[in-house]
Write a protein that binds this DNA or RNA. Structure first.
Length: 549
RNA sequence: GGCCCCUUCGUCUAGUGGUUAGGACACCGGCCUUUCACGCCGGUAACACGGGUUCGAUCCCCGUAGGGGUCACCA
């Protein structure tokens, strides 16, 4: 072979382009929500396929409910688009194996069921639901594994006719082996060995002729030429029966890789979107939720408990997370490259991802770490990109015109620059609403007001004096203001801290914010002076009121 | 309950038959500072337990405990 380069080349070519083309898939049900655990599974699939030039396929598992499917599908597709997880074949993009909706593929499944029936690998079962339930209950009562008696199994047309004469209808069940073991290698779990006998005779076709998940799944995976089935570990116990089906139908088996589920914050239970009320007891989860809820509230977004949920990706999009941050966080949830690398670009993920390094145990969702990634990514986004994103929130909160006006944009840019990493997600721009509200509508933080204005005896006097200086100065840039105010402090023989807190409350109403000189400069002389006047009036009124009592 | 899976700081994880068990987030302390953040410096903190095997086990084997998944005419 060594002296026969042509063949060697051919082999390389052949194995890369034909044998090794990786095709993976993600198969959501159109429920309307994209679960964060599901996204991670999809991401792993996507990475695995794309890193070697393969294809990632989106298939819609809607064998059960066909109603209102289009509406329920959109949020899922939008979520993937937002995250930059694109699909080579599937809804809206089509592909060579259309259709990609299971509801439209029934004939294929029925043909497969028929083939299994003909080979004696499946049978018509005429048991009623009640009879089946009774057998199951008996097994449970005896604390034994349920093994169907096959009393109502029909393997010949004569038997079938006899049951039908009794008015019975049939489902098609797999005739599972009852001896030996099903053995297969899982890329993550390792060697798996399960007794065939522990596999029930699972139904693959309903009485109404429609087919069930396991059959549809196997048929589609083969039809779509899926090479790697990467899915949640909850499917591990489904694998033997799917192998049984695939072998019965003469398919090549895909590579299986069962990844552990994403667990709840602070527990090892599977993360579930329904348990949000419970998760809200977790202080980190609550904080994440609350910061989102605050933003949603300010932009007038209706908080639908069904969708506004940190377990769903929708949530992050709505409050201004960066998709790259979410993806980076998720890729490290159950996978790592080495002992230190944490920041991954899409390219480096593609370069380094491998199933071999997927962790075997479940990983808890950690809102704090997600937030940390988000903060880091946000910092790297250039001002030019941040500005329009932030503007959207101001518009939605009616703090600026829609669309935002030109001079407002330049103010916004200054705010974003001055705020720096205080804006961790785009929606945080709403924390700086004080720049946009009318002077007489400014809300004052009561605690700060009391502490900085009311309690210090000379606060009013100092602010009054400062107002005179600020009114008179020709320059109003941050650097000039710093010199001016420091000079003012020297004149008054006070420390800068003695005036600046009172000043901040007076002009922003808040206890904290970014640099004071920046704040003044952005606000501009007119607003600053005006707000000080209003604040001093408020102080006077309150003192007069207090004296009267 | 049957079957299957998992177990390293609070969390995500790295790691090896001999390491001061590494990193990140969080937390605590300090510095910086007009507040809040950031940043910088430092710190606390883990191999579930019990038996083996071995000169030596976090690492290999067995068991125990704990946690979890799954047992549909759902997907």
């Amino acid at each position: 072979m060594a002296n026969c380069p042509k063949i060697a080349n051919f082999q390389t070519y052949f194995s890369r382009t034909i044998l090794m083309t990786v095709r993976t898939r993600f198969a959501p049900s159109p429920t309307g929500y994209l679960h964060i655990g599901g996204v991670r599974t999809a991401l792993f699939n996507w990475l695995l396929a794309k890193q070697s030039g393969g294809q990632f396929i989106l298939r819609i598992d809607d064998t059960d409910q066909a109603r209102n499917q289009e509406a329920a599908l959109q949020p899922i597709l939008e979520g993937f688009r937002w995250l930059g997880i694109d699909w080579d074949e599937g809804p809206e993009v089509g592909g060579p194996h259309e259709p990609y909706f299971q509801s439209a593929r029934l004939e294929k499944y029925q043909a497969a069921a028929k083939a299994l029936l003909e080979q004696g690998l499946a049978y018509r079962d005429y048991a009623t639901t009640a009879e089946m339930t009774a057998e199951r209950a008996a097994a449970e009562k005896a604390k034994q594994e349920f093994v169907y008696s096959r009393t109502w199994m029909a393997e010949t047309d004569e038997q079938a006719a006899a049951f039908e004469a009794e008015g019975r209808a049939y489902v098609v069940r797999l005739k599972m082996p009852r001896v030996g073991k099903c053995e297969f290698t899982d890329k993550i779990v390792g060697e798996v060995s399960i007794d065939w006998a522990s596999e029930a005779d699972h139904a693959i076709q309903r009485a109404d002729g429609t087919c069930l998940y396991h059959l549809a799944n196997v048929v589609d995976d083969a039809d779509f030429e899926i090479t790697h089935v990467v899915r949640g570990i909850e499917h591990l116990s489904n694998t033997p029966r799917q192998i049984f089906i695939a072998q019965g139908l003469g398919y090549d088996l895909p590579v299986y890789a069962h990844i552990p589920y994403v667990a709840e914050p602070g527990s090892k239970k599977k993360l579930s979107k329904r348990k949000i009320a419970e998760y809200l007891n977790n202080k980190d989860f609550k904080r994440l939720y609350q910061s989102g809820a605050d933003i949603a509230d300010r932009i007038g977004l209706e908080i639908d408990p069904g969708t506004f949920n940190p377990v769903l990706v929708d949530f992050y999009e709505k409050i201004g997370f960066t998709p790259e941050a979410v993806v980076n966080y998720l890729v490290l949830l159950g996978w790592s490259l080495d002992d230190k690398t944490e920041d991954f670009t899409r390219a480096s993920m593609l370069e380094h991802f491998s199933l071999d390094r997927v962790v075997k145990s479940a990983a808890s969702f950690d809102p704090q770490k997600l937030l940390a990634f988000q903060g880091r990514y946000m910092n790297q986004i250039p001002l030019k990109k941040k500005t329009p994103r932030c503007a959207r929130y101001l518009e939605q909160a009616n703090l600026v015109e829609t669309p935002i006006e030109c001079d407002q944009v330049s103010t916004l840019k200054q705010i974003i620059e001055a705020a720096g990493d205080r804006i961790a997600m785009t929606g945080d721009i709403l924390n700086f609403d004080d720049f946009w509200v009318d002077d007489d509508k400014l809300a004052y933080n009561e605690k700060a007001w009391q502490k900085r204005m009311v309690k210090p005896e000379n606060a009013g006097f100092l602010i009054g004096e400062l107002k005179k200086v600020l009114s008179a100065t020709p320059e109003f840039a941050a650097a000039d203001l710093e010199t001016l105010i420091k000079g003012f402090c020297e004149t008054q023989e006070i420390k800068i801290g003695d005036i600046i807190h009172a000043l901040r409350v007076s002009v922003t109403g808040k206890a904290a914010g970014f640099g004071m000189f920046d704040t003044l400069a952005i606000l501009g002389r007119e607003k600053v002076v005006n707000r000080i006047t209003i604040a001093l009036q408020k102080l006077d009124d309150e003192k007069a009121g207090a004296a009267a009592v």
